[in-house]
Simulated scan of single mutants.
Amino acid sequence: MRTYLLAAITAITLFTTQAAQAQAQRPLDSIIPIRGFCIDAPRPNGLDSFINFINQELAPRKVNTLLILVDYRYQFKTHPELVDSFALSNADVKTIVKACARHNIRIIPQINLLGHQGWEQHVGKLLQAYPEFDETPWVKNPEHYVWPNADNLYCRSYCPLHPKLHPILFDVIDELCDAFESNAFHGGMDEVFYLAESKCPRCGGQDPALIFANEVRTIHDHLAQKGRELWIWGDRLIDGKSTGIGIWEASYNNTWRAIDLIPKDVVICDWHYERPDKTAVLFAMKGLRVVTCPWRNSESGIVQVDDMIRFRDGSTNEMKPRFYGICETTWIPTHVFLNGFYGIGQPPAPGQNANGRSRGTAWQCFRDIYQHIDSLGY
């Protein structure tokens, strides 16, 4: 009996070892195709530190996609009236492009479209230069911003039906993509609270889902003319009420039905920061490629990495490519992130989530999820 038991244990150990070795032999790109990092565009005086971070931190961790939140912090030639403060020059951008090319890191620049046309009481550059594009011009900015408020003001939106809007947007999108030599563009489109407002003379009373979907398609079709992909955040395509996910990471204003109306080659960045909600499955089942996006919750982020691997491994041949990967987000200025990452100065306190636990920091989450990926041995 002992002989049989030893033989059985030996066989099981050998099988387990062989299975682990087989897993380890799989290329990392087949396990997690997109291994991303999302951060603000650096200020020009912080460019050298940003390049060092690319070389010393992103490349060794096998990050292959860099999503840069530029908005109007680039010295546009087509529309100089839209240039924001701390704007990168074309030479600055080419320095970033060169560093990323050295490590085969794909760059995807972002300009926030539709929503996020400003922040709380501050109006963004597009609506500063073209106030006629404002979806809700009757909503006045408060002197001291609080949430919630009677106007439901979080961030302003532009009206996507204004006839003079898209030629301007297309100019700056093309110029930015050309500068970054990018074959993809991220259009934002998250947290859109103002859309198809009843008092808007153009889109008032129309279906928010149709308005949202048409704006996605308009940007998508323009990019497709030059062989570029459109990436967007996924929250407006999730029903916040039926899922219980809520008003921030999902939609309460009926834009979620647009998930069935947008082009199937749009890439969805599905962000969930407090819980590892499994909505990547929803997007994949709708025919869309999806990238799951953690932020500052390492425990949740590691689960999201494991979920993405399991979803790919447990899917049909049709579904598997749609589970596209992981992208760590940061949501603080680049120099603040780098100071926190390297322990320089006094980093901002992480705060607490709803259950009283520490939220953690984006730099620790970045470290933890990529250490976890590395520990898998691929």
Rank of each mutant, 00 (worst) to 15 (best):
K94R: 15
A209S: 09
E229W: 13
L58Q: 01
L169R: 05
Q206Y: 09
E249H: 13
E274T: 13
D29N: 11
E181M: 05
G188Q: 02
E81W: 05
Y154V: 14
V216G: 08
L14V: 15
I247Y: 15
G187I: 01
A22P: 01
T13D: 11
V70D: 12
I32Y: 02
I105Q: 04
H335N: 15
Y273A: 06
P347G: 00
M285G: 08
V93E: 03
L127A: 06
Y154G: 07
R359N: 14
K286Y: 05
Q304M: 15
L169D: 07
N317T: 13
S298Q: 06
G314H: 09
D265W: 00
A99N: 03
H220G: 02
K125A: 03
W295S: 02
P42Y: 11
C327W: 00
A24D: 09
C100A: 12
I302L: 05
L82C: 10
A224K: 14
S89G: 03
S358A: 05
P109M: 04
Q128V: 11
R310G: 04
D239Q: 05
K98L: 11
R2T: 14
Y4F: 15
A362P: 13
F212V: 13
N183L: 08
P148T: 07
L161N: 13
P44C: 07
A224I: 00
M189W: 11
F170L: 05
N141R: 15
Q128D: 08
I344K: 14
F180Y: 14
D29A: 13
L6C: 05
Q110N: 12
T136M: 08
G124Y: 00
F193I: 10
K320D: 01
I302S: 00
L14I: 10
I332F: 07
A91E: 15
N90D: 12
Y378E: 05
T13P: 01
A8P: 00
K164P: 10
V123P: 03
L230N: 04
I268Q: 01
D92Q: 09
I232Y: 02
I232F: 01
V336E: 06
P33G: 02
C38T: 13
L237F: 06
K164G: 12
Q346E: 13
